[in-house]
Nucleic acid binder design. Structure first.
Lengths: 188, 188, 188, 188
DNA sequence: GATGAATGAGGGTTCATTCAT
DNA sequence: CATGAATGAACCCTCATTCAT
């Protein structure tokens, strides 16, 4: 009988959303610090939440990661909605995201056949399609460039960044950006 | 504590080299199938060898991987010694290697600070330097291309291949090759 | 990797304290029987508890031992609080503890630089200081006796007992007690 | 068929004694550096000898240790044969031995029931008996002191030294010596 | 609904001892 | 006789997942 003492107060149903948010925030930090394979127990601990609650809200690692990375994709989608945005801007944003945390790419790759992961990937492709059409019609990139090329370039760069030492990421990102700029001939 | 019961026959020292070769072959297969982080016990099992023997021959994962991948690098070195070889050939060979197994890149990246890994990396850089000088003087690539650019391109592509589904690797490799060819302007 | 099949019933959090106590009791027995270096897996097995639970409660051997031996030190501290107690009583008690189990000394010595071990040692020194001052002012021991002498004597005796055959411990203890009594001149 | 190369020359029977000596010397060093429980493989390696040869010469750890420590006991025996030697000298010598290497005590204690260990212990007792008779008849120690007292004192001190940090051994030895001097009243 | 303890398989590593050559 | 490789049990520790309360 738990007559004892300092167990965290059971706040009842109202704690649900708060815990969920805490878990997402904690996961974002833990994934950024320790990578996508970090122990889920570390996430629960950082969120100040029981492991059971973590599993209730997110039945597996992917469910948790999808919640975390939904924001990143949303950011990309917001970008393409602003009229002036270019492929170059997209590279910038994705690079910035990858420099900050690397776990999205790891997940997209390590669980690439999971339906939820596929869905995130689809949204990224849609973003690329949109921006590519705009850049082509503006003459900023060659007509021969396909969405799959851009997707591959983005993937390779983000993957590379995800494996680089953090302090080397900015210079690696710059060099990679230059290579792909040349390949896609943004400037003309 | 002592154990023995009805153990496998002890073949004596003469089994050493054979076991060593069996371990390297088993590691090559296991790394190709399950990636660089595959359990070493799986390597010992597949080689038909006790775990202790694995550790005698190769005190850690990197020592084993170095033995496995030494061949790959040697192949690259042989390539650059043939006079007519070009950067394009190097891409072809590395791509072919990465399509086959993937673990070399993983090791170069995940243990990038280990001295033995650094040594393998150095050999790759030397290969790139040689071939780059040759291609530049032949006018096959632009003067602005640096060895670090090539190294990054190769790394990104190999890393990407290492994470791709095996059946998609050939088409991914072709697409990547095309992107970097454009970037480095091989053709003019 | 997930495992479960027909596992032992999960009794939930309420089993925590009971398991903790079972672990301490099991460790006390195992340490007494097999010494301080006994396998921790034996402790878990005797406690009827998974290895993981052992590690959850006590992240390493020292944490477990500290829990086990806290009682011993507490007993010493209780002794010195009773006004009439003498150095001779302290020897008696420590000897009795060492005759029963032996692992405390082994730990104090084998992990002497660990902070938790140092802490236990400090508590023993405090006990000695208290009792030494009392005995000196009562004229029961010579003024030249230092705390370090007593500590060394106690350590040597307890260590010796810890290495003796159990059935010889009482006579060894008596002989050692006599030697140190003579050395410290209790009687005059 | 070992047609191959740099295997150590098989010198035939003549290598026997040389290997034996090399093993003893190596064991002395290894035991001094790493304690009595050091891996036997380390001894063979340091001796430049196969493990099989080690086991041929010394079928177990104790056989090897007996060979190593025979010298120590012989030194004690030589001491008591010089007419003027006293118990105090014996303490000095044993202390010096224990400060240098600690493994003899560990063996005498950890394998105390092995016949060979018993034999070494017997020789030490004989040394004590001789010197005790001499000191008593010279009036250097009290008539009440028994050989078992001296044996215990020596054991406790040597054991303690064997567990102390090397740099603290000299001061610990001095303090212990003083305690036992007082206990046995050497000076009067 | 939340809690958080328990589980236990699995991987890495070490080392005493054996034995074909 | 020496060699030195092989064996493999045993230990340590981690972590994904479950479930009584």
């Amino acid at each position: 009988m738990p007559t004892n003492s300092e167990a965290k107060a059971n706040l009842g149903p109202s704690a649900g959303p708060a815990n969920r948010r805490a878990l997402i925030a904690a996961a974002r930090e833990v994934f950024a610090e320790s990578g996508f394979q970090a122990p889920l127990s570390a996430v629960a601990r950082r969120a100040g939440v029981g492991q059971g609650s973590l599993y209730r809200h997110f039945p597996d690692r992917i469910a948790l990661a999808v919640a975390v990375f939904d924001d990143n994709i949303t950011e990309l989608e917001a970008l393409v909605e602003s009229d002036g945005s270019t492929l170059s801007d997209l590279f910038d944003l994705i690079t910035a995201q990858a420099i900050g945390s690397t776990a999205l790419v790891d997940m997209l790759i390590s669980d690439r056949h999971d339906a939820r992961t596929v869905h995130l990937g689809t949204r990224v492709v849609a973003v690329i399609d949109t921006i590519l059409a705009r850049d082509k019609s503006a003459g900023r990139i060659g007509a021969g460039v396909e969405a799959a090329d851009v997707m591959l370039a983005i993937s390779m760069l983000a993957l590379m960044l995800s494996k680089s030492d953090p302090e080397e990421r900015p210079s690696t990102a710059a060099r990679g950006r230059a290579i792909f700029r040349a390949a896609f001939s943004y400037q003309r």
